[in-house]
């Protein structure tokens, strides 16, 4: 359902057969191209999860794309500062639909240990919509792997028509410009 311009709810007439949506979701969840947006410490655990011991590639997350324009999944790993926030938003906008975001680590979840800093964006969900939050400081590589599995479940259960039609309404508004401090 979407809310149209007059504020009325409209139920969609388009219905995808279950097998088609299953196939589309299944193929998408097992071929995620993960854009490496490692900012800080979490990026090291992110790299460790791609290494032979934890091996993120067995979940289908290969290869690492050369640019955001080819990526499906953005993992924001690390603290998002106010100076970096516009770049994060720009990179997110460069990704084509359907795109997913995993927020890895407590800094990008909610500001983390820098909750009282004057130049940190308290959570990347203030700028872009997040699908899965992986807690930890830093999360273990197994934690990131679990986060990706949860995302894959989410993708599997996605309702494709709803996602494609009502999507624009789901992006949260930017809450605050990120300038916190200096009152």
């Amino acid at each position: 359902m979407t809310i149209d311009g007059d504020g009325r709810e409209r139920v969609h007439r388009v219905k995808l057969p279950k097998s088609v949506s299953f196939l589309l979701n299944w193929s998408r969840k097992y071929s995620l191209w993960m854009f490496q947006f490692g900012l800080a410490c979490c990026s090291i655990e992110f790299i460790a999860s791609a290494m032979p011991k934890h091996d993120i590639m067995r979940l289908g997350v290969i290869p690492f794309p050369a640019s955001p324009r080819q990526a499906d999944l953005m993992v924001v790993a690390g603290t998002v500062t106010d100076k970096m926030a516009p770049a994060v938003k720009r990179v997110y906008e460069q990704m084509p639909e359907p795109k997913y975001v995993i927020s890895m680590g407590s800094c990008s979840n909610c500001g983390g240990p820098y909750w009282d800093s004057y130049c940190v964006t308290k959570g990347v969900d203030q700028i872009i919509p997040v699908d899965v939050y992986v807690p930890g400081c830093p999360p273990r590589p197994e934690g990131l792997l679990y986060g990706i599995v949860r995302l894959q479940n989410k993708i599997q259960n996605e309702n494709i028509p709803e996602r494609w039609s009502g999507h624009a309404a789901k992006i949260p508004q930017i809450m605050g410009t990120g300038r916190s401090g200096g009152i």
Partner: peptide, 23 residues
């Protein structure tokens, strides 16, 4: 530089001597 400036020097002034090691 400055894209990872998180303000450590200001933040440690709000934490006691054991808590600063975490930051």
């Amino acid at each position: 530089i400055g894209y990872m400036h998180r303000g450590h020097e200001k933040l440690v002034e709000q934490r006691d001597f054991r808590q600063i090691t975490n930051l």
